[in-house]
Design a binder for these strands. Structure first.
Lengths: 208, 208, 208, 208
DNA sequence: GATGAATGAGACTTCATTCAT
DNA sequence: AATGAATGAAGTCTCATTCAT
């Protein structure tokens, strides 16, 4: 019989990850110390090392369990929308609402991760996995729209998905650095306008 | 009376900045050591401190003198293009060709800078200055196109400029982390297609 | 809940202070290195920094806890003597016996402290505190003697106390620099002879 | 024919010593840098090294040429006084007026020197030389007074001279650290009163 | 299982001294 | 002769990780 229940252990683990996320976001991965993290979750450094073997592993786990789950979250929250266009709109909305309102820390973690990814191949792998999954999800939606005759037939679904991601995460990293006059909502509307005029030129005409 | 000519001093200064840029790009600012930099430019650490008072000042100088000059470079290289649309195309081309081909290191420095900007207000200020200048430049081009009756009259020049920047730098940061299947040229074409269909819907129709 | 008892921590703290005192005395504050101190108490530098945040703080603590307690020690060891004159004699004896025999290191620390006091206001404050307390104690003894009709009525207790301190500490600093032919005991006798002839001229006459 | 006259060289040398004295007094010997000194005398560090081979040698020269000349200065300024007692009074006056008014920096240098003397045998030698010469000078005056039947015959001239020096330099070091309520003039009067009552008890009686 | 004191390699920075110009 | 740029050893302090309690 385990002295400490599995749930309790998992709670601890999540508390450590929460603390690490907070600290990483605030000071960046390199400046964050194990003591910072242990202080943020009221756990001794020794206890912390019973859950994660190194500081790097905490980072990696965050990339996998927090950033890496973004695609799944996306799919879950946008699949119920009706037409491909509506699902696409949902995705664009999610980019801004999720990052800006519901989980602003995820955006900050993304930036920390991007930097570490440059010289840490494991972090890089995690980051690329997220990117690939999101791209595929968006790509599928667009492909569905094309197949349904809703979107222009010559659209390159994959590239458009990639561009969408670059814009979203580009906006995110600028937003988390506190760039002045960067309004996520206005940006979202513009993105949608661009997409509509490109994917559905005739429908866009009606708006004129 | 300096025993060493001013040019020589400036060359040394630039050599240090070059070395620092290389090292910062490779390991990030925090992991880069003064010894790394001094080794990269064949100068002793002591000599290095005759040119820059702290490691942080080197970073700041890079932000100002390398990243911060991007707007001026943009203006110089794209102002000769003819119509607003052609100038816009020049800009989008420059984003990819400059970052991807001519000065790939600037893109990497951008990422390092973004991360440091989160907790270093001076770096942040430098980064925001660059962003603002680039946005204004792009915004002016777009406004010119609207005024000339070339672009749709209801376009929000500022927001579109912002979005363009987010996309460009978003693409850049993903590109510098080695994201697989991220082709800057294809991305560029897609960006231009989106812009054309939005800004010049009728012209775009002709392409159908 | 401390794993290490408070006494143990205090012992460590004192061991560090002992080591620092030894090193400061030997090389002076500036030349003493943290590594010297850590080596002298068989503790790693890191451990040392758990007890004192900076090298300067170690010095300051020494000034407060070692030098600063001299007045209290003086009071404790001389208050039991009978008449004011006997107490004064006790004090003069203590200056030489304590510094020269029992705690020679305190005298050396005094010199180190004096030098640092010139450009360190906190050290200065500590030093002046000790001086003031000793002066007041001596002054009170002399005033008592005057009030008791034992000492000449026109004596300036405060100035005499100050002079006594200057002589004692002047002797100390010369003694700790190994000045040849400086005998603390002979010096003490002379000091007492001067004091007696000044404070109690009639009694002194009897000695003729 | 030397390019630079000997006088000019000597002027330079003295300028360096002046600058070094100023800097040593302000920050202490260890914290003073060669650059500090070179800046204080408008000479390049290179030039400075043509006059003194090391930083230590500058210190040593100061001890010899500035501190070490104190005895000669004393002799010169006090020998014209008449009786031994008057010469003694002159000496005590000189201690305070010279240190406090005319050459306050010498007092500060004394303190710096005392500290360095602890671990630098050459500095120590210089300091002890000064001490010995001053003691001998004072001792001779006192011996003269005894021989002249002016001072009590059983006085120990050497010990009294030593005590006088300890008091004077003790007062000096406390004075240079800015000890509050330390008035050199009052101290001087008290010293003289002590000396008179001890050396000339009958004359002192008259003052009652 | 938990604690947090201890370790020690390594970071940034300073500065006495040298030497090419 | 003079300059001051360059050197690099050495100092203070930090922090990921370990392990006795």
């Amino acid at each position: 019989m385990p002295r400490v229940s599995a749930e309790h252990k998992e709670q601890r683990r999540q508390a450590i990850l929460d603390a690490a996320m907070e600290v990483f976001i605030g000071k960046g991965y390199q400046l964050a110390t194990i003591n910072d993290i242990s202080a943020h979750c009221n756990l001794s450094v020794g206890a912390l090392y019973r859950y994660f073997p190194t500081k790097g592993e905490i980072m990696l786990t965050l990339v996998e369990e927090r950033l890496g789950r973004t695609p799944a979250t996306f799919a879950r929250l946008t699949e119920k929308a009706g037409t491909p266009w509506e699902r696409l709109v949902s995705c664009v909305n999610l980019f801004t609402s999720a990052l800006g309102v519901r989980h602003p820390s995820t955006g900050r973690l993304l930036l920390v991760t991007l930097t570490e990814a440059v010289h840490d191949s494991e972090v890089r792998r995690g980051l690329h996995g997220r990117f690939k999954a999101l791209r595929e999800y968006l790509s599928t939606i667009i492909a569905d729209g094309i197949a349904a005759g809703m979107f222009r037939p010559d659209a390159d679904a994959d590239t458009l998905a990639t561009l969408l991601l670059c814009t979203a995460d580009g906006g995110t990293v600028y937003w988390v650095t506190g760039t002045p006059n960067l309004d996520l909502r206005t940006l979202r509307s513009m993105m949608l306008a661009l997409l509509r005029s490109y994917l559905m030129p005739d429908a866009s005409d009606e708006h004129h």
